[in-house]
Write a protein that binds this DNA or RNA. Structure first.
Lengths: 341, 341
DNA sequence: TTGAAAGCGATACCAC
DNA sequence: GTGGTATCGCTTTCAA
């Protein structure tokens, strides 16, 4: 039985081999001044030869700086197969590469009293990306703790509390406008709306935009044209019948997420109706699935990868220039024409 | 300007408040014996009151045990939007919850000489899940390093080297059989095959299975019926014309991945051919997209979530019973009937 | 059963 | 410039 128990090569091993103090090696490894170029070279060479890898945990422990990006998302056993999140994560991962950091994932179960700040302390996190806060509970205390302890973070989609924080979101008002103007250009006047999760930031924002703009643009006003989902496929499937069963059916339906639109699509097809002939359909997000369904889903694109990447950028910036203060980044949506309307 | 600089609450703060040595608190936090139940309770209460969170990095540093699961995947800027991987990750994340560990992601760029073992040392990783090794380079040295240093790990899909390691994969032979037997039952005798990435473990394995079984099952034998992709959408789109342009066209095509099947589907439709009437199509994997495309893609399901979860299980088991030795887990595939054949 | 002291692998500071 | 020493927050002997 092989029991090798090799100890890792530490900074001290390198120092001993080079005949210098380990603090000197540390200076070299951190690319600091005060070491003669010649010695520097020699130490680097020896370190490379020995295959020395600095221990990131020891480093974090003393310096209070981590080399990670912590992504915190609301507890959801299907998080990783919701492509909306994935596209965000792809952007975050690309940013990690850029800043040479490593991605860590935390699911936050607020019902168990877990908090963002706790996570940051437990793992010495100095940079956090908070995805889709669940506003069923008040988290402003938690957010303040992060701020008071100089944890750099950004939230993806807006923060609804009053504290100013880094955030990256899409211009929902503009997105809704793009959708409605297109529908109007196609002659629609009676447009149904499937609203998103009220405990998110996008849900209510898009709903407000819809209400405001549908008036402004002289669409038919009718309370019954608005039904309430939660962004999921199932909710689209569940709410769509309410619109189809109206005495006066809408000629087009705008769903606040692609998932709901696809759920709605399924319901519509099941009734033997044709899209877009009998009823036009438009989504929001441009998640992967939108391109695959039949007919292709016309939708409003959020630049999700970019949003993920910029969220990390903002947090890094807060770290580099703490005085600068938090930024709110609102990216432009884009109209994506496919076949559903 | 608020500059609070709160120091985190440490084990010493708890000890001081409780009037005991910090080592005693440590015993309590780690649920060890040798502390009177009464004292135990009192310490736990105080710790809770103070909101004490053990510092995981300090803990790992001294104990050489981490509370993480490191997922290592081959460098690929689109990794997170390849749903095949995500379904694996969903399973891994669920296992993380189960074992109360935190997920860390590392992309491995072998061209830069990065190694699995390096990562484990740098981050004090004790549990690793290796996804889809790229066999363009020899990694057996790397794998040996992991083994010699008691890093517990599993690879997802098989390990092609000669060392015995934990691995979780699907029974490719059985999967190919399910597909071919179904096609045969539908009267097909001339079946095209789009093969997967030769530098993976599934690619060659499925190809071998196809060759063996197509003989055994008396399908038409014709070298030209096999074309070579790499599992991606693009390769399916690229290779399909070669089959369509054959003097004697196959009546059915079996793609070694859903992505290739969907790429092929696109090509077929572009030619104005109908699926399955003009040509039947079957995929492999049952990734998310298979259900969305039109016509729905008939395919062979890999239990990807389960594979991810079991990979962690195996690694944990190696940790708990090191003598037991590595296990090779081969899960059963399943035939999923949709509309493409 | 409890506490004191050593040490994990690094950084930071202060002499020299 | 370079080296010694304290320190980060924790676990782990070992003595009392």
């Amino acid at each position: 039985m092989k029991r090798v128990e090799k100890r890792s090569i530490t900074i001290k091993d390198v120092a001993k081999r080079a005949g210098v103090a380990h603090s000197t090696v540390s200076l070299v490894m951190n690319e600091r001044e005060h070491v003669s170029p010649k010695l520097r070279e020699r130490i680097l060479k020896i370190a490379a030869e020995m295959g020395y890898q600095p221990n990131m945990l020891a480093r974090s422990l003393i310096s209070k700086k981590s080399s990670t990006v912590a992504v915190v998302f609301p507890e959801n056993p299907h998080f990783f197969t919701i492509t909306y999140f994935l596209m965000l994560i792809e952007g975050i991962q690309n940013a990690c590469k850029k800043y040479d950091r490593v991605l860590m994932f935390f699911s936050l179960d607020q019902t168990k009293g877990e908090s963002y700040y706790q996570i940051s302390r437990k793992w010495l996190i100095d940079l956090m990306v908070i995805i889709n806060i669940d506003y069923t509970r008040d988290i402003s205390r938690d957010i303040q703790d992060l701020k008071n302890n100089n944890i750099c973070f950004s939230v993806i989609t807006k923060y609804r509390g009053k504290e100013k924080v880094n955030s990256v979101s899409v211009d929902n008002f503009e997105g809704v406008r793009l959708a409605l103007e297109y529908l109007i250009s196609q002659g629609h006047r009676r447009v149904g709306y499937i609203s998103g999760n009220p405990n998110s930031s996008d849900g209510p924002e898009r709903l407000r935009a819809f209400k405001t703009l549908s008036k402004q643009l002289n669409l038919e006003q009718d309370e019954e044209l608005i039904v309430y989902g939660d962004f999921t496929f199932e909710s689209g499937e569940r709410e769509m019948p309410k619109l189809l069963d109206l005495k006066k059916r809408p000629t087009a339906v705008f769903a606040a997420s692609d998932y709901m639109a696809i759920g709605a699509m399924r319901t519509i097809k099941a009734r033997g109706l044709s899209i877009p002939k009998d009823i036009a359909l438009i989504g929001f997000d441009n998640t992967l699935e939108a391109a695959y369904v039949e007919p292709g889903l016309t939708t409003i694109r959020q630049p999700l990868q970019e949003m993920g990447e910029r969220a990390v950028d903002l947090a890094i910036q807060s770290m580099r220039e703490p005085e600068a203060g938090p930024q709110t980044l609102v990216l432009k949506p884009e109209f994506i024409k496919r076949q559903s309307c």
